[in-house]
């Protein structure tokens, strides 16, 4: 298969992959305040690391909320379509995709060959997204990565507020009451799982759910999701790159040929 590049300009991280039937290279850079500059930087790094001459670039497809900010690099395709394609590639058995990104979450029901049958999106508020976890981690004096390796033997503390701002004050008062930090962290993950579950149930479908996006790195969240859904939840270390991989897959079909 020829080479192609996919860039996912997300709200928190910019992901880029070099693809030729499998993922040859991948990188992630925090988006910062200028997605265009960071996107260009990601592309330059992919070129440099793989000895690609920018003037003879393999086809590039852009996706993510900043997909239109890198105009000249290549055509843009929405993150919905790209996540579907990327997830179907990464998780051949899955019929549904759950993506929890920095600022939004989405559920996609897959059609044949990684196409989109139907989708739901929550991007109205930060509750239940990576941004939500980031705020809460700071509050609990934890790192985001700590949310991936929480002890399983403490009960999740139920968090009733859906909104980030209210959840923040709820967590503060629970901490003041002496509630265990790990219990709180699990409770926050469980509230994310609850929201995601509601979205998946509305979408319908059965069988394994492919879980993508930055938040999918939390093994605790995967287990909480499985418990609520009663369906297997599959993920992988490539899962945060699903959008970029999908973009690269689409670039394969549309771009100029280059072997």
């Amino acid at each position: 298969m020829k080479q192609s590049i996919g860039i996912d300009l997300g709200s928190m991280g910019i992901k880029a992959v070099l693809f030729d039937g499998s993922v040859r290279d991948r990188l992630m850079i925090p988006t910062g305040w200028n997605p265009r500059e960071t996107g260009e930087q990601a592309l330059r790094e992919i070129y440099a690391r793989n000895g690609i001459d920018p003037s003879d670039s393999p086809p590039v497809v852009l996706t993510g909320y900043g997909r239109n900010s890198l105009g000249k690099a290549g055509p843009s395709v929405t993150e919905i379509t790209c996540h579907a394609a990327g997830s179907a590639f990464l998780f051949p058995g899955a019929g549904t995709v759950l993506d929890i990104g920095g600022q939004d979450s989405k559920a996609i029901s897959l059609g044949r060959e990684g196409t989109v049958n139907d989708f739901l999106m929550n991007d109205k508020c930060a509750a239940g997204t990576g941004r939500f976890l980031q705020v809460m981690a700071a509050l609990l004096d934890m790192e985001l990565d700590d949310f991936s390796r929480l002890p399983e033997d403490v009960p999740p503390q139920p968090i009733s507020s859906m909104c980030t701002v209210f959840a923040e004050s709820e967590v503060v008062s629970l901490l003041a009451r002496g509630v265990d930090k790990h219990s709180l962290a699990l409770g926050l993950l469980d509230s994310i799982a609850g929201r995601a579950c509601a979205m998946l149930q509305k979408l319908g479908g059965s069988g394994p759910v492919a879980f993508t996006g930055g938040v999918s790195r939390s093994r605790n969240l995967v287990r909480l999701l499985e418990k609520r859904l009663g369906r297997p939840v599959v993920t992988s270390s490539d899962a945060p790159y699903a959008g970029a991989i999908g973009a690269a897959l689409i670039a394969q079909k549309s771009g100029k040929s280059r072997s």
């Binding site: 395709v77 929405t78 993150e79 919905i80 379509t81 196409t115 989109v116 989708f119 999106m121």
Partner: peptide, 10 residues
């Protein structure tokens, strides 16, 4: 726009 573009793509 993202929702509509994604719908049109689908």
């Amino acid at each position: 726009r993202t929702r509509i573009e994604a719908f049109v793509e689908s």
